[in-house]
Design a protein around this nucleic acid. Structure first.
Lengths: 195, 195
DNA sequence: ACCTGAACACCGTTCAAGT
DNA sequence: ACCTGAACACCGTTCAAGT
């Protein structure tokens, strides 16, 4: 890449970062280009889609979340590890207003620039879930995709201003549903609702 | 209202209904006007905002859901009544792709044309919840607003094509969290997580 | 190689001019 | 009273023309 091109690219990423923090991921691309003193077409050649721009911007964060899942995998309490990591995921998405919708769309769209990162994230969660399930502290009728969907739903809640005040509480409610109730080691009769 | 105005209004509502069914609530208003062979400005005077158009279109459905909650209030099992009604709510929103976001925004926006309907819906859910709580079969650390948020989150899930296949299952998971586990009537020691 | 302005086909909003 | 076309300020996409 030519030096001036790299300079443009880096500058665009910096400007996009602040613009998205201020206005959310739906911010006008034209506006980002304007703020970066660059033609709109220049932005679009560096980042052909909104998803491509976000991917470049969020790659570091994605990697951090995946790495943290790896650390949690060695912790003593599989269920605490799972819940703590889920909480980290939800907290992270709230920094990028609107990103949940794009991630939900990207998880099955192999053409999306965000696809690989989302799949990696789901796999990291699936490992933590499997460990808790093996330890008998997470319900066994859900998988990594269910977990991804629950994170997305809770993150979406945090993204809606009128519902956001309840997001933390509802996270706890959903977390309690993921963890099998230790009080009911039910071997018979009182099986929890399953699909 | 003049006869020709009423005719325009009714025709616009009919066209909007099919357009929204096909393309979701974000369908272009210009497109609806075009399909109705009417000027865009005409549509906007009958329905000054997208929410106003939706309110006119969904009022019947809102009323039906509220009425059904009333019927459920007299049923034998408060917990079955609550869960069945929640299921009806989620199922209904899936008929109007994208409506969940507008409802979440409307619940605290007194200016929104959808505000009153959303508040009524929340109150209907709150009554069913209170009845189940009084019967000791629903956790007592949530209220009508939490319930509204959970419905919205589950409806949003159903609205995301990649996550939709898990929506029914995850509804059951969340429902199990709302209903206190009958196996753990925990009087001491194993209190469920609370905020 | 890389950048850019301009044209394009959209969108919702507003309003003066028609019937 | 009610309707409408046109102007407006946006949006993302595309591409021929510049350096």
């Amino acid at each position: 890449m030519r030096a001036d091109a790299k300079k443009n690219r880096d500058h665009l990423l910096a400007v996009a970062g602040t613009a998205i923090t201020e206005q959310g991921v739906d911010v006008s691309l034209r506006d980002i280009a304007r703020r970066a003193d660059v033609g709109l077409a220049t932005l679009l050649r560096h980042f052909p889609t909104r998803e491509a721009l976000l991917e470049a911007l969020l790659r570091t964060s994605f990697d951090e979340l995946t790495a943290r899942a790896g650390e949690f995998e060695t912790s003593d309490s599989p269920e605490d590890a799972l819940v703590s990591w889920l909480r980290d995921c939800v907290a992270w998405t709230t920094e990028y207003r609107g990103v949940t919708v794009l991630m939900a769309a990207a998880i099955e769209d192999t053409e999306s620039a965000l696809h690989a990162s989302c799949v990696t994230l789901r796999a990291a969660g699936a490992r933590l879930l499997a460990r808790a399930q093996a330890a008998g502290t997470a319900r066994t009728d859900i998988d990594g995709t269910d977990l991804f969907a629950l994170i997305a739903a809770l993150a979406w809640l945090s993204d809606q201003p009128p519902l956001a005040p309840r997001a933390d509480h509802l996270f706890a409610v959903v977390a309690s549903a993921i963890l099998t109730n230790p009080a009911s080691t039910n071997t018979e009769g009182t099986a929890p609702p399953s699909p």
